[in-house]
Amino acid sequence: MNLFRFAGDILHLLSILVLLLKIHATKSCAGISLKTQELYLAVFITRYLDLFWNFHSLYNSVFKVVYIGTTSMIVWYMRRHRNVKLTYDRDHDTFRYLFLVAPCAVLSLLINARYNLFEILWTFSIYLEAVAILPQLVLLQRTKNVDNLTGNYVFLLGLYRAFYILNWVYRFATEPGYSAWLVWISGLIQTGLYLDFFYYYVQAWKQSKKLQLPS
């Protein structure tokens, strides 16, 4: 465990809490993609299946439970809460699950470290996490005016991924024999998806303007 990894995990947690608090306080989920949230829930469940038998550390286990719990709450709010669900922008959140889930499923069957069910599900979760933000980015693009909290949510998520890359660089430099190609490549692709958003986020911040994405 190094500081980059720790900062990444905290930023990830913070991003989820920002979103959850926004929904809870405003009773609105306008601008939030339910597709992305459900994909993240699928990511966490398929990756953390090992929660009950593959104990690594209390730190990891607590984070796993918290990620699954908080993301479930977001999905619950968006689908079931009587006021929140009315604010869900379903007309714009039209990205198809299948476009992301099917290629990731096929890829995890073809490229994995070991051919068994849990390894394949874990690999699937790595691939799916890389692209799960896409419905959210598409929704932001469509609605143009991004409210501050939604913008901060995506920014924190991107920052979390950036810190994971620093963590890998650090580990590669300090741990002999450390390599994780599958995770690295997926992680680089995932972080790359945020670059465009980052550019506009920083521009808006520098000019103290409201974040607006170009069409």
């Binding site: 990894r5 984070f63 470290a113 963590n167």
Partner: peptide, 10 residues
């Protein structure tokens, strides 16, 4: 068995 470093991350 290979070391599965990758599984120690979240």
């Amino acid at each position: 068995d290979q070391k599965s470093y990758d599984k120690d991350e979240l």
